[in-house]
Structure formats: structure tokens, C-alpha cells
Amino acid sequence: MKPYLFAAISAGFLATSFAASAADGPAILESKCASCHALTQPENSALDHVWERKGPDLYYAGDKFNKPWLVEWLQDPIRIRPAGEFYFKHVKKGDKVDVVDESTLTEHPKLAKADAEAAADALMALTGPEGLIEKGKFKDKKASPMAKMLFTKLRGCYACHSTGDGKGGLSGPELHTGGERLQPDFIYSYIKDPQKIDKSVWMPKLNISEQDLQNLTSYIVQLSGKKEAK
């Protein structure tokens, strides 16, 4: 085969493969994700929806996640919620406190790299209703020395969330990968008014000052999963 003909065929094959992979993103979401996650905004957002769902809603995934994290995580998922989506269903009585009942939890499916990239593209295309996330309100400043104390002691975040230091609660998602995983505008908006984004979620609305809101967001943004912010 002549070199130019081989090159043309190869280029066509690569283009076709790429197009198929990109086109498969929504199909991958339907086959792999839809049974546990809401890909469109649920008509019912009351408590029974939160109680019954197996994974977090994804209809606003493009406003929530950072794409590079999605691509990596979908290939090698590590549990974000230590006690599952609804922790009451996945804990048992321990010697002193409730502990996670691992037997009730299932592993998240892994995707091949090409499928993970296609699924991540499809997820990033899912955005919520206008105004769901407050865009541009976070000032992207370095967290003040008080930020960690706000998180661990003054605002009670440690009761439900961990930051990778062996402390913190199990009922909410871990936040030691928060900066890699979540967009700053989402973090800011969710802390400010969790029920605006997830109507019946049990995270309390803190009613905190704008300065504290900026500081808490800055603290979480700096958490990369590698080294906790000082």
C-alpha cells in the first residue's frame, strides 16, 4: 500500500473512531449512569427522592465538576461518600459510635479511558436551570488563617465531612479532593444555600457572612487530595 493511501485510511479511521467515541457519551450515561443518577431535573425533588436515589443528581454536572477530575475518577472510582448516598441506609451500630456497613455498599463501575472521556464530555454538557449556581461571586482569594478553623470548629463542617486527616464525619461527601473535584462557583453556591440546589438535602443552610462564605470556599478550593491547605 502506498504511504499516502495508508495515511489517508489511518486518518479516516482515527476520525471515525473519535467521532464514535464522542457520540457515545450520552449513550454511556444512559447505560451506565441513569439507573443511579438523575440526568434530567426530577419532577419530584421531595425527601422521598433523596431517600430513594442511589447516587447524586447529575443534571447539573457541568456546573459542578471539573472535567479533568471526572475523566480520571471514572476510570478508577474512589468512594466520595464514605457511607453511601443516604448514610442512614449504610451504617450499623459500633462499639461506641455508628460505623459504615461496607456490606451494603456497591462499587462504582469503571470505564475505559475513551469511554471516560466521552462520558465526561457528556456530563459537562449537562447544566442546571439558569440561576441554580451563582456565577462569579467567589473572589478566588487565598483562604485566611481562620478558614480552617471555620471548617473544623466554628461552622461544624467536620461533623459530616472529612478532609483527609483521619478526622471528620461520614454522612457527607469527603472534601479532601474538593478543589480538584468541584468548581469554585458550585462550592460557593452550595455552601450559601444547599436547598436551592438540592431541595431536600440534609445539609443545613448556615446563614453565614459573605466573608465567612468566601473563606470556607477558599479553604475547600485549596484541598487537592494531595496535601491539606494550611
Rank of each mutant, 00 (worst) to 15 (best):
K2I: 04
Y4E: 15
F6H: 11
F6P: 00
A7K: 06
A7Q: 08
S10T: 15
S10N: 04
S10I: 09
G12F: 09
G12P: 05
F13S: 11
T16W: 15
A19I: 13
S21K: 11
A22H: 07
D24E: 09
P26S: 09
P26C: 08
A27D: 13
I28C: 04
I28M: 02
L29K: 06
L29R: 02
S31W: 00
C33K: 08
L39S: 13
Q41Y: 05
P42G: 07
E43T: 15
S45A: 15
S45T: 15
S45M: 15
A46K: 13
R53Q: 14
R53A: 06
K54N: 10
D57E: 14
D57I: 12
D57Q: 11
L58P: 08
Y59W: 13
A61E: 01
A61H: 07
G62E: 04
G62A: 03
D63P: 02
K64T: 15
N66G: 00
K67T: 06
W69M: 01
L70W: 03
E72N: 11
W73S: 12
Q75V: 00
Q75N: 04
D76T: 13
I80K: 03
I80D: 10
E85P: 02
K92I: 03
G94W: 01
D95Q: 11
E102W: 00
E102M: 01
T104F: 00
T104M: 01
T104W: 02
H108Y: 08
P109T: 02
L111C: 01
L111R: 00
A112K: 10
K113W: 00
A114N: 11
A114P: 00
A118E: 03
A119I: 02
A122R: 03
A122K: 03
L123F: 10
M124I: 10
A125Q: 14
G128R: 02
E130G: 12
E130F: 12
G131E: 10
L132I: 09
I133L: 03
I133M: 04
E134V: 08
E134Y: 01
E134F: 00
K135R: 13
K135E: 10
K139D: 07
A143I: 01
A143W: 06
P145K: 07
P145Q: 09
M146Q: 15
A147Q: 07
K148N: 05
F151E: 06
L154E: 15
Y158K: 13
Y158R: 14
A159M: 14
A159G: 11
G164S: 05
L170D: 14
G172P: 09
P173W: 05
P173L: 10
E174N: 15
T177K: 14
G178Q: 10
L182I: 05
L182E: 08
P184A: 13
D185P: 11
D185K: 12
F186M: 09
F186C: 07
I187T: 14
I187M: 14
Y188Q: 09
S189D: 09
Y190V: 10
Y190E: 05
I191Q: 06
I191F: 05
I191K: 10
K192N: 12
Q195E: 10
Q195K: 14
K196Q: 11
I197D: 02
D198T: 15
V201H: 04
N207R: 10
I208C: 09
S209V: 07
S209H: 06
D212H: 08
L216E: 12
T217D: 12
Y219H: 07
Y219A: 03
V221E: 04
Q222R: 12
S224L: 04
S224H: 06
G225N: 04
A229Y: 14
K230C: 00
